[in-house]
Design a protein around this nucleic acid. Structure first.
Lengths: 217, 217
DNA sequence: GCGTAACTCGACACCCTGTTGACTCGTTCG
DNA sequence: CGAACGAGTCAACAGGGTGTCGAGTTACGC
């Protein structure tokens, strides 16, 4: 809510002391957060835990971050940058076959989740309590959906895929499926698909939905 | 966590004074919870809000329910009963066509969400913070998945659907998609499918995934 | 009219968040 | 050198939430 006195252009999110060495402290907080998130949920981690983990007092924590959520956001910024990079790479390089292209996209999505399990689980959790987190998620999701919708339309244009549902609606549904299935798989809550099979299962549904033609249903 | 002194067999969950009139109070609390959930999230509702809404003091609230979450669970028990009833009805009556059968199943799932928007949104939110809520969700989800898997296998057995992914994995993926897409649609957070189109979109993906055969992808 | 069980709530103990104001300490510059 | 400044630090506070305890107050059967 309150704005930092000395602005730093780089991260935008959270407060950032401009000067030199206290930088280590900020990194220590981030590292502590990542470590603790691997063992318990964000809700079960207090600001005091983060401060102690970084070797500072609680008030000092507030010198570096405006809140617990700001720490998460800072961590997420990295993941988002990575995810965007991966996405552009996937949609940028031409595929040898349609199947291979979609498989690469899904595997990439899978990989982003997998490489940061704890963080993405915390992300999903915080999404329901924090507007900024929700907005960040929405923007990432939106970019994926848009890319997929464009790709679907391209396939239809070249005659490889039949017309059917609006491409964007299809992209939203399929991307939503990926998100939820991967979340369930990695968080281990409730019925889920085995980790080894998950890309194959998702790919199967994607291909059917995009290319499949129905007979006499 | 402490158990109620006078047990009542009916709901199992939460404490329940057996005797006469304080029953109204319990209903008042439930009604207040439902009303408040329509305007803000569970996290933004305090026990005090519920107590005041029901015309009692905060300590008295604890005479009726063990916690805020217990109220939610009590509310959810109703929805679960309804959802299960709907599910059995859907899978119990024979469909005139395969398409019509699946459409009815998806429409039923949609209807359960829609009739209790606020509650199901709160459900999803609390799932990440409360074990009992999570478990309840998992059990409902599991029942849907099982029913769908059975139905898919039946379609394959009668030769109407081609073999492909394991029926259960497919059911998990598709049911997950429904859950996430409906949640996004009703909570209004992030990119989503228009409410009017959502059943059609989901149905399209289900039919493709279950019956669709791929050409030369 | 009396015991007992349902019911009620003021007051408390505790945990968490976020803020304030005073203090240290290194650097910079007159 | 030493005043001034700004980064960095934290004890102490204010405030809001949860859950509990024990001392009431009814209401009803006997």
């Amino acid at each position: 809510m309150s704005e930092a006195p000395g602005e730093a252009p780089s991260t935008g999110r959270g407060r950032r002391p401009v000067r030199p060495s206290g930088d280590d402290r900020e990194l220590a907080i981030l590292a502590t957060a990542e470590r603790l998130l691997a063992e318990r949920s964000l809700g079960a981690i207090s600001v005091d835990d983060l401060a102690r983990g970084a070797g500072i007092s609680r008030p000092t924590f507030y010198f570096y971050f405006a809140s617990k959520d700001a720490v998460l956001l800072s961590l997420l910024d990295r993941v988002v940058a990575e995810a965007d990079g991966t996405m552009h790479e996937v949609f940028g390089t031409p595929a040898t076959s349609a199947r291979e292209g979609w498989e690469r996209a899904i595997a990439a999505y899978y990989e982003v989740f997998r490489a940061h399990r704890a963080l993405t689980v915390a992300w999903a959790e915080a999404r329901s309590t924090n507007d900024e987190v929700r907005a960040l998620w929405s923007s990432v999701f939106e970019r994926w959906v848009t890319q997929c919708a464009v790709a679907i339309e391209a396939e239809r244009a070249r005659g490889a895929a039949p017309d059917g549902l609006p491409a964007r609606d299809l992209a939203v549904a399929l991307t939503s499926m990926n998100e939820r299935v991967l979340y369930a798989t990695f968080s281990g809550d409730g019925p889920s698909v085995a980790e080894a099979d998950v890309v194959e299962v998702l790919l199967g549904v994607w291909l059917s939905a995009i290319y499949g033609t129905l007979g006499d249903v």
